[in-house]
Design a binder for these strands. Structure first.
Lengths: 239, 239
DNA sequence: CGCGGTGTTGAGACCTGTCAAGACGTGTGG
DNA sequence: CCACACGTCTTGACAGGTCTCAACACCGCG
């Protein structure tokens, strides 16, 4: 199931057969997490990182008020807390949204990478930089776009990211988030998410039903979102 | 003037004399930028990265509406577009706020680092991850905190970051941003920044005058901001 | 001395939040 | 098979934080 991760990498640069072997060798074991669990807690000492093979998870920060902000959604193929390798502990939780399958990668093996596989290190450094770019785009959304636009942007981004790993087709993909969780992503209240979703539907841009998203008019949705996928760096080139 | 950069690194891990020599050798030349210029434009092909030696700069994203969101403020010691080494182009502009002095680092020298200096690569990877953490905290602010809290958070963060590089003392630091620029950081309008600043002043928490910030009551300001510097990773340990 | 950038203030509008109630759907236990 | 509980979604009325627009004050600088 690590294929999704390889797809994600190979969308940005060539990965040789030997490198693929090295990547597969990073994984020490696999783990399954039920939905709605905190898998890594902020502040915990880390000795390993986690690759999401299947399911949906997220980076979330709790506030003293009990509210939560989701900083980034993770889908299959994402190396969710690779940044924990250098940080040694995280400033956010890693939580499961749906039931998920994870591959565990001991930090010592990543360290070995830094000593023996420069190209793979650049690739993985690059991957954490893409995460930062995604976060940056989200900052822009929260700072300067209204609810409609933010939500459109979220659905556009997920479409592209899921297509990259083969989890979206015909502008349609599985979407396990509740409206309350969408609210935590977009800095809104669940009530307002509900109303905004209805508006997107009334505009015939999107349909969310049965835990699936159907994008009915991608062009207009992209417009509403002011979405430009450049920040996802989907160009194959030497890194 | 690269000392500020070394201070920033050494606040997180030991840097040997030899490593210091290597770091100094990264710089090919220096450059001065006037205030209010776009130094790197989003999308441009990059062949070098930029270390901020003196002055204030920022990562900014323009919107079709002509608005701008500042994703991160940079102060002396920051390797502003180190992530450009793996990304090859940026998804945001790098702009000067005040007149600034920069050290230019060719990407080939960074690439050389990835092949010969594993520890320094981990350090620089780490540094880009801290930037991501700063951005993440800002996402939380924009998503879940009101104007007063966001602004308090900004001033707390800058105090800690500036202390790390020796640019703040007695809870006071130079602060060259206009209220309009603060608005671009916090996702507010200049008018509202003005009013919020007045409220912070009325609460005797902070004073902004003559392009300096004076924090009058750090403890209460920290409270208002819900500020916890953990996300700045100011612990010295092996990386 | 006038000009442009910056900061300040007021009144009203608007987007989003709050609170509360009810509908819907699914899984569980009797 | 029904009753119930719980999570999720939906709706309405109202409140409130922030924005918009506009005018004016201040100040350094040419």
């Amino acid at each position: 199931m690590i294929e999704r991760h390889l797809m994600k990498l190979r969308a940005r640069d060539d990965i040789s057969a030997e490198e693929e072997r090295v990547i597969r060798g990073l994984v020490s074991h696999m783990v399954t997490v039920p939905a709605d669990r905190t898998f890594v807690r902020a502040g915990e000492e880390l000795k390993e990182s986690t690759l999401l093979l299947d399911g949906w998870m997220a980076r979330a920060k709790d506030l003293p008020t009990g509210e939560r902000q989701i900083a980034e959604i993770h889908v299959a193929g994402d190396f969710m807390d690779l940044h924990g390798f250098t940080l040694k502990r995280l400033d956010h939780d890693v939580v499961s949204i749906s039931q998920s399958t994870l591959a565990i990668v001991p930090h010592e093996r990543v360290k070995d990478l830094t000593e023996r596989y420069p190209h793979l290190v650049r690739m993985y450094w690059f991957m954490t930089n893409i995460d930062a770019a995604i976060q940056r785009e989200s900052t822009v959304s929260l700072g300067r776009r209204d609810a409609l636009s933010r939500m459109a942007q979220l659905f556009c981004e997920l479409l592209v990211r899921l297509e990259t790993v083969g989890l979206a087709s015909d502008n349609r993909y599985a979407f396990p988030l509740t409206q309350a969780e969408v609210a935590e992503c977009l800095g809104l209240t669940p009530v307002h998410v509900n109303r905004t979703l209805q508006e997107l539907r009334r505009m015939n841009l999107i349909e969310v039903r049965d835990w699936h998203v159907d994008i009915l008019d991608l062009e207009r949705l992209t417009d509403v979102a002011q979405f430009d996928p450049a920040y996802l760096y989907l160009e194959k080139r030497e890194r």
